Computed example of a mutant assay.
Amino acid sequence: MSIFQIKQKTSGAILWTGSAHDEKTALDAMAREAGYPDYASLPDQLRARIVETLKLDLIS
């Protein structure tokens, strides 16, 4: 598993940070925390505002 961070397009606000297997799983987890069944269930208007999903694997 990896750590992912999802940011909002216009403000740069961090919408979600957490552990997931891949980018799709991270987007689904973010959507579930927002009350939707998965990322595909988000309204188009909301999906268009998400700018990037970053993989934050850090090596210590």
Rank of each mutant, 00 (worst) to 15 (best):
K7M: 14
D44T: 06
G18K: 06
L15Q: 00
M30G: 01
K9V: 05
A48D: 12
D22T: 00
F4K: 02
R32Q: 15
L27K: 11
E33A: 10
I6C: 03
A13S: 13
G12W: 06
R49Y: 05
Y36S: 05
E33T: 14
L46M: 12
E23Q: 09
K7T: 15
S19Q: 13
K7P: 07
S60F: 06
P43D: 10
A40N: 11
I50Y: 00
S11I: 10
K24S: 08
S60L: 11
K7W: 10
S11M: 02
L42H: 06
T25Y: 03
F4W: 07
L56Q: 12
A29G: 02
G18V: 02
D44H: 07
L56M: 13
D38M: 04
T17G: 10
E52F: 01
Y36G: 05
L42K: 03
L15R: 14
T53D: 07
L58Q: 15
L42N: 08
A20L: 08
K55Q: 15
L56S: 13
A48S: 14
I50D: 09
D57P: 06
S41I: 03
A31D: 03
E52R: 04
I3Y: 06
A34N: 06
A40M: 09
L42D: 06
Q45V: 13
V51C: 08
S2G: 05
L42F: 04
K24H: 02
M1H: 08
R49H: 12
I59Y: 15
G35Y: 00
E23C: 04
S2F: 05
K9D: 15
G12Q: 05
P43C: 11
E33M: 12
W16Q: 01
S11L: 03
I50A: 12
L15D: 00
S2T: 14
T53E: 14
A26W: 08
L27N: 09
R32Y: 07
Y36A: 04
A34H: 08
I3F: 04
G35M: 02
A26H: 04
Q8C: 03
K9L: 13
S11E: 05
A40T: 14
E33H: 12
T17F: 08
M30H: 13
K7S: 15
I6V: 15
G35P: 09
L58T: 06
I3G: 01
K7Q: 07
K55F: 01
E23H: 11
R32P: 02
V51R: 09
I59R: 12
A40L: 11
S60N: 07
P43E: 13
G18H: 03
A40S: 13
Y39H: 09
I50W: 00
K7G: 09
H21M: 14
D57F: 04
Q5G: 11
E52I: 06
A48E: 12
D22G: 01
E23V: 04
A13H: 08
D57M: 04
I50R: 01
S19L: 08
L56F: 06
E52P: 00
A13R: 06
S19H: 08
P43K: 14
R49K: 15
G12F: 09
R49F: 11
D44E: 14
L58N: 15
M1C: 05
A40C: 01
A20Y: 05
P43I: 04
T53H: 14
E33N: 14
T25N: 10
I6A: 03
L46V: 13
S41A: 15
T17R: 09
A34M: 14
